[in-house]
Design a protein around this nucleic acid. Structure first.
Length: 587
RNA sequence: GGGGGCGUAGUGUAGCGGUUAACAUGCCGGCCUGUCAAGCCGGAGAUCGCGGGUUCGAAUCCCGUCGCUCCCGCCA
């Protein structure tokens, strides 16, 4: 080894030791006759002193050093002179007095400073990702990710799980997201697809008698990017045989709690994880992945508001739409301008307008709809909303889906404005009792709410024939801080039921056989009841690291249009390669 | 596919119709033995993302285009 100590570990107790360090020049402070070098490696920073009283040669070398030079330093650990300790640095009570400095490699001036984060254009960081990753923040994120995955492996190993790799070159199915395709050289005109998840394969492993499987699995989906979506991402994919929902929830909950405690500084604030039904989540928060770090719950005001003279409210109530709202505490003094801002927010979600009622601290009322409400009815409305003096009641009347979407946005906005979010918290919860299928208005058909291997709840199987939309499934989502961080289900393990669900979502038997024949066939050879879950590693690490997007916790992420700005991928290939793959371009 | 934001020395920003294109930092050189965002002095460094247009004159206004980003659609 070119070093026998890391740059983050030396303390006062090491005083007098001869050490060899190696790393990068973080910063050089040249006082003329005395030079300080902050030497950085993956572990931290140590101050090295080049003192001519110790060695003229060392000072001469130190003068030539520049940021990001790679150097090896041999020296003695010394306590810093009285009053010279740097309390901001873990290694700040000592310094290494260099006897010898060797330049292992010089460096060009980097395009940005490693030791200072200046909010560079992200394109620049991505182009020089190997430099960006040298920064303490990125090193910390990589460490959190490593610890999380290490914890997962240990936790599952201890519970009898087997880690099994599944193919990356697999089969395309038109269901779900767009596939990444890989042309076959030996099968002209045919393509592999990169897996959107190892869903089918892990179910086949259950048929194979593995019973407890997991994989840290790369998944690929050719869809447009978001802050929490990359074209390739990582899931903890796991599946168990002979289990019911409770088994999976307990296992995953213990895993999450342990992982958070082990990998980061955040605290899991909701233990045991609350369980919300899908219907309850939508009713109380307007979304199936609410941020539970704060309250601001939605209230249904349809009954009271429908009794008013306000046509928008009355028609909503009469036509089966809803009037819903939320109380923003202490906001009764909101100005016209502020209210216009909030209204613009809900209009982006399709709401036509935003009604408001300010209950002043002196109990008087100011409202956009005051003239349509008698004094009694206004009192009823405020009571129904649970408004306290000083509150601002914000109300949307619309189709349920629109009102919920609008109030979800409003709820999150008010939480930010009122500073209700504790950033040290991770508020996990389960969402259960999802509908099995959702009506796709555009295609005029039923789509699976989760995926087509999800089983309906036992008592709802008859509904598949009569009222499919009312049938609940054995799907469960794991949510945290407003993100969906995992989803799973108890699967269908019987061919007849699987075929029934396929028919329901409009797959012909020919399509089903072509796409899933291997699975359906497997189901005839003794398939155990099974189920699983797939938590998203990138999102979980993002939340644990307190980062705003998953690129910050991905070593080499892609840009929004799915490009690798460092390697310049995707790129053109030469015509010979295309010919071999039987591909002609049509651009 | 649609909407919003950003793009000016290496980097981060200011300038928003006439400036020698400014400031900070970094870089280069000089001075400096207790610094840790070291300090002081000096210097170099920008066809203002790219293309077109309007104008006597464009970093600035207009159109287009490229890149990054946020959101909607999409993401079983």
């Amino acid at each position: 080894m070119l070093k026998n100590r890391n740059c983050g570990e030396l303390r006062g107790e090491h005083t007098g030791q001869q050490v060899t360090l190696a790393g990068w020049v973080n910063r050089r402070r040249d006082l003329g006759g005395l030079i300080f070098i902050d030497l950085r490696d993956h572990d931290g920073v140590t101050q090295v002193v080049a003192n001519p009283a110790v060695s003229q040669e060392v000072l001469r070398v130190a003068e030539t050093l520049r940021p990001e030079y790679v150097v090896q330093v041999e020296g003695t650990v010394n306590p810093r002179p009285a009053g010279m300790a740097n309390l901001d640095l873990p290694t700040g009570e000592i310094e290494v007095v260099a006897h010898h400095i060797q330049v292992l490699n010089a460096a060009k001036t980097p395009p940005f400073l490693i030791h200072r984060e200046e909010d560079e254009l992200e394109a620049l960081r991505l182009r020089y990702r190997y430099l960006d990753l040298r920064r303490a923040r990125m090193q910390r994120n990589l460490l959190i990710r490593h610890r999380a995955v290490k914890f997962i492996r240990d936790y599952l190993d201890l519970r009898g799980f087997l880690e099994v790799e599944t193919p990356i070159l697999f089969k395309s199915t038109p269901e779900g997201a767009r596939d990444y395709l890989v042309p076959s050289r030996v099968h002209p005109g045919k393509f592999y697809a990169l897996p959107q998840s190892p869903q089918q394969l892990k179910q086949l492993l259950m048929v194979a008698g593995v019973e407890r499987y997991f994989q840290i699995a790369r998944c690929f989906r050719d869809e447009d990017q978001r802050a929490d979506r990359q074209p390739e991402f990582t899931q903890l994919d796991l599946e168990m045989s002979f289990v019911d929902r409770e088994d999976i929830l307990q296992l995953a909950e213990g895993l999450m709690i342990g992982m958070v405690a082990h990998a980061c500084e955040k605290r899991t604030s909701t233990v045991p994880f609350p369980r919300l039904t899908y219907a309850e989540a939508l009713a109380r928060y307007g979304t199936d992945r609410p941020d539970l770090r704060f309250g601001l719950e939605l209230v249904d005001l349809t009954a009271v508001a429908g009794r008013s003279e306000f046509r928008v409210f009355r028609e909503a109530a009469e036509s089966g739409n809803v009037v819903k709202g939320l109380c923003a505490p202490g906001c009764s003094d909101y100005s016209r301008k502020q209210l216009v801002e909030l209204e613009a927010l809900v209009q982006e979600e399709g709401a036509k307008g935003l009604a408001w009622v300010a209950l002043n601290p002196d109990a008087t009322v100011r409202s956009s709809v005051a003239k349509f409400f008698s004094q009694e009815l206004m009192a009823d409305l405020l009571a129904a909303a649970g408004a306290q003096p000083g509150d601002l009641l914000l109300v949307v009347a619309d189709r349920t889906a629109v009102a919920n979407a609008a109030l979800d946005v409003l709820r999150r906005e008010m939480a930010l404005r009122l500073d209700l979010i504790d950033r040290r918290e991770l508020a996990f919860a389960w969402v259960i009792d999802f509908p099995l299928v959702l009506w796709n208005e555009q295609e005029q058909r039923w789509d699976p709410s989760h995926h087509l291997f999800t089983s309906p709840q036992e008592q709802d199987i008859p509904l598949l024939e009569t009222d499919p939309g009312a049938a609940k499934s054995n799907q469960y989502d794991l949510i945290c801080n407003g993100f969906e961080v995992g989803g799973g289900s108890i699967r269908i393990h019987q061919r007849e039921l699987q075929e029934k669900v396929m028919r329901l979502i409009g797959l012909t038997m020919e399509q089903a056989r072509a796409q899933f024949g291997h699975l359906l066939e497997a189901f005839e050879y003794g398939t155990p009841p099974h189920g699983g879950i797939a938590p998203g590693i990138d999102r979980l690490v993002m939340l644990m690291a307190g980062e705003p997007n998953i690129r910050e916790v991905t070593a080499f992420p892609k840009s929004q249009n799915a490009a690798d700005l460092m390697a310049n991928a995707p790129s053109e290939v030469d015509s010979g390669q295309l010919k071999e793959l039987h591909i002609r371009l049509d651009l």
